[in-house]
Amino acid sequence: MQFSENWLRSIVDPKMSSDELSHLLTMSGLEVEEVEAVAPPFSNVVVAHVVEVAKHPNADRLNVCQVDAGTGTLLNIVCGAPNVRAGMKAICAKAGALLPPGADGKPFEIKVGKLRGVESQGMMCSSKELGISEESNGLMELPEDAPVGQNIRDYLGLNDLKFTIKLTPNKADCLSVLGVAREVSALTGSPLSLAPTRAVPVSSDEILPVKVSAPDLCGRFAGRVIRGLNARAAIPEWMKRRLERSGQRSVSALVDISNYVMLEVGRPSHVFDLAKIHGSLDVRWGKKGESLKLLNGNT
């Protein structure tokens, strides 16, 4: 079971350090196997607005950008990222910033200097350069409402830890963030802060027939037909971060919501595309020779 400490503390926030919380969980029977920082140390890195982009006079693959990093004056920054453009919000390491260590094991300091004859007063960053992602297709683009000048560690909630706990078979009640939060609340007396919920009335009498051919696998199957959904809706960044810090990649709006509910409250569910179901559902054992294509493309 892996989860974000910040997510846990949004439900229950005992007055103790991360180390003390880890020790408390282990001593209560929820053995903490690993505590890992979400991001490596770095400083002086902020949300920035790219105001203007022009081609570098001496290099075909470089651009010269005018960047608002909340300093009161525009910074002249040379950038080689293929996706840089005027108007975007991105991440900027200002002069004096210390970025995560490179191959030599030493922090990389950003200094004012010249790149192919043009002064650069900082560095536009990808998520990979900050050590918060293994993949990078250029600059990490931020939402339009990201506040210019804000410390990127605060904006992205990077001062966070990932807890991995080892559960025994009798502690299935802790296979969710809420379950762990209840345990912490019981141990410390700290109150639970639960997000408000409301019942959604059924507005359709449409039913999809379901047959359970393997009652040894599935004792009960419940579902609801829901129409009028936008399966391509944008996923909030805070939800993506919580999923990623729980070991789940963001797939799509409906899959992410299903995974999020499972991780937060411990209620597994699955979303089916009604248009691809012919007649009914049959819950059964697989047959010899059958294959199943998963969401990640594997079979």
Rank of each mutant, 00 (worst) to 15 (best):
L254H: 07
L254W: 04
L254M: 06
V255H: 04
V255R: 03
V255Y: 14
V255S: 09
D256T: 06
D256W: 09
D256Y: 11
D256A: 05
I257C: 13
I257A: 09
S258F: 04
S258T: 10
S258L: 00
N259Y: 05
Y260N: 02
Y260H: 08
Y260D: 03
V261F: 08
V261L: 13
M262I: 03
L263Y: 08
E264T: 11
E264C: 04
V265K: 01
V265G: 01
V265W: 05
G266S: 01
R267W: 12
R267I: 14
R267C: 05
R267T: 07
P268M: 02
P268C: 04
S269I: 06
S269Y: 01
H270D: 03
H270T: 09
V271W: 09
V271Q: 02
V271P: 07
D273T: 06
D273V: 08
D273K: 08
L274E: 14
L274I: 13
L274M: 06
L274W: 03
A275Q: 15
K276V: 15
K276H: 09
I277A: 11
I277W: 00
I277S: 12
H278D: 15
H278Q: 13
G279D: 12
G279T: 11
G279H: 01
G279S: 03
S280W: 03
L281H: 03
L281V: 08
D282S: 14
D282N: 14
V283Q: 10
G286I: 13
G286W: 01
K287A: 09
K287Q: 09
K287D: 05
K287S: 07
K288Y: 08
K288W: 03
K288C: 04
K288F: 05
K288Q: 06
G289I: 14
G289Q: 04
G289D: 07
G289C: 12
E290L: 03
S291Q: 14
S291N: 04
S291L: 11
L292W: 10
L292I: 10
L294I: 07
L294K: 13
L295A: 01
L295R: 04
N296T: 09
N296I: 05
N296F: 00
N296S: 06
T299K: 06
